[in-house]
Design a binder for these strands. Structure first.
Lengths: 351, 351
DNA sequence: TAACTGATTATAAAGGTTTTTATATTCATC
DNA sequence: GATGAATATAAAAACCTTTATAATCAGTTA
């Protein structure tokens, strides 16, 4: 073994090994009697390095528990090895956020990527966190939700060439990776199952402002169902899925005590569904008799909820996995159009 | 303005300004006709730099939107500016994770710190993510939950001198930052309120295995309440708060159909409470008549749940804020004993 | 006059990695 | 026995920041 002293180590080279600090390429280089260049290449299986050398270097690396220094790599390559999840802090009752995070993590844990979470509040400009990430270069890819038909974030990121994937679709003629739950199908099927139970005056709790794409999908599916079934659409005014549960409950009580109350209701989140039930019962009506309720849920809590309501599941964890895979593949250069997927409502077997 | 060419720029210095790339200290240095050192110091308000220079440099920095390169800082200083939240992926129904994340983010957003999330599954060794973070040096501080009385993670991190804060206490004679909900008080008050409703045979759904500290706190508060009230503690065997909702429901139906069924029940998560109710009703009993139920919740969903159950709130978002502040202050060198806090159950006004 | 302040700014090195370019060695070919 | 190609390793530069040290310069002071 050739021992070289390049005069760079301020502590004697012999001490190099004994340091309590984390090993670097230099440590391995010293131990193997090679240059850092060769070590760097050997570790990433570069073709220029002889097999014997590779084996030796990789063995040493494993033995001393070498882990590349992220800052070094990041500085040199410009890659952060970070995916950033940007989501809003309000609309996340009942485990939507958690499941998304877990789904994404599940995929990233097999890779060198870390996940950072950047919440923003609905009062603030949704562009702000996006701009921050781009300006500071703090992530290689972004996952975001609450997509709007004409979404400035999508435009901005596309212009800047930053890989991203959205939970939800847009309608702006830009191809980008997305995963979406088929809310149109959900709303349609919901109406269908209410019709099948003989309900005729059907209402839906609206999605979060028409600015968010899935509001439109819900609406489309709902209208189609109503039309096909020759039913009457009763509208809820003054509340949507972003409204506080307290207000939803109160308004619901009002509506259900009024003259033109619906006998079937579609709702797109579990939390709101519980508030709706509270309002309905406060008005003295019984679920399953006076009125039926269908809801989407993203945890299985509603499955055990009494009174029993009709439930369709959205597997948000799966969405997280899909989105993570999509950004990663986008970063790897895969065409955006190959990274678009939809998942379909899955009716809970009644219990 | 003095123009200097240090011969380092591979692209002509004039082009330096026009680049579409992110500005660095060098960019500012060139624009101001100063050295990078001076610029670096001027930006952080170092005492060695003249006020006029500082003003000039800071103005330029703001104008061109300079943001320090994280990798550069990290490499040079060894600080990652990252806080890592380590939590387990299962026990998080009903928004516990989300609220924790949002609470932490709220605090970190005022600082240069980013939040990364590292979930692990209950089947895996909880030490694994911790070791990874320490070995790769990927965070300056850690926040973790599900603390055990004798927690190997706490021991490990303390030995390695890594700042951290736990959601939950330990019992190992090591002072470390924590924030905890007073589960003993919660259990005690829960029993009290059941007693006040005339209940005598009171049971509790156990916390997650005695290995997790708050199990003991629940137990202690529960026992004290029972004792003081001269009541009978009926035990649930075979289920705890980590059991699947389906099993909880089924087992509950069994228990409530049996001979020695309780007439008062304490439960420590909202999700489980819903499953309990399902089981109770399946056994043909009525909440509020045959039996009363008290539960802790960390979102306000249960507040609207019917039948009405007694609810105490744990403000997990607040816990997140406390924990974030605690790690940050610990990183800043504050004594661990000053970073320990408790929050108290807060009974929901009945609705 | 020379040495000393104190206030500024500059130089150089370091941190860990990757990449471009260079050097040394081996092997086959003419 | 020289030329060229192929193989194997090294050196040096670059990424951006911070810090320790050095240099400059004015105005004092001994």
């Amino acid at each position: 073994m050739k021992v070289k002293d390049d005069g760079q180590g301020h502590s004697g080279d012999a001490a190099e090994l004994a340091e309590g600090e984390r090993p670097t390429l230099k440590t391995i280089a010293f131990m193997a009697g090679l240059g850092v260049t060769t070590v760097s290449r050997a570790l990433k299986d570069a073709p220029e390095i002889g097999q014997a050398t590779k084996n030796r270097v990789q063995l040493i690396a494993k033995q001393i528990g070498y882990r590349p220094n992220r800052a070094g790599v990041r500085l040199r390559t410009g890659k952060t090895n970070v995916i950033s999840l940007v989501l809003n802090a309000q609309s996340s009752i009942m485990g939507l956020t958690s499941n998304m995070v877990y789904g994404i993590s599940e995929v990233l844990s097999q890779t060198p990527y870390h996940l950072t979470v950047t919440p923003y509040s609905l009062e603030n400009d949704p562009m702000q966190p996006i701009r921050y990430i781009v300006e500071t270069g703090s992530a290689d890819g972004i996952i975001m939700s609450r997509t709007e038909p004409d979404d400035p974030r999508v435009r901005y990121l596309t212009e800047h060439g930053i890989p991203f994937a959205t939970h939800g679709r847009t309608e702006m003629g830009i191809d980008h990776p997305f995963h979406d739950f088929d809310n149109e199908a959900f709303a349609y099927l919901s109406v269908k199952s209410l019709l099948a139970r003989g309900r005729r005056r059907i209402a839906m709790l609206a999605g979060p402002s028409p600015a968010v794409t899935y509001y439109r999908h819900l609406d489309r599916g709902f209208s189609r169902g109503i039309e096909e079934g020759n039913a009457v659409a009763a509208l809820f005014s003054g509340i949507d899925v972003d409204t506080s549960l307290g207000r939803i409950r109160d308004r619901m009580e009002e509506i259900m005590s009024g003259p033109n109350r619906p006998d079937g209701i579609v709702c797109c989140t579990g939390g709101a569904a519980i508030a709706l039930v509270a309002g309905i019962e406060a008005a003295g009506l019984k679920i399953g008799e006076d009125v039926d309720l269908v809801s989407k849920q993203s945890t299985d809590v509603l499955k055990w909820f009494r009174p029993q309501i009709i439930v369709f599941n959205e597997d948000v964890r799966h969405a997280g996995r899909e989105l993570a895979r999509a950004v990663l593949r986008r970063i790897a250069g895969v065409d955006a159009r190959e990274l678009q997927s939809l998942s379909y409502p899955d009716e809970n077997e009644p219990r």
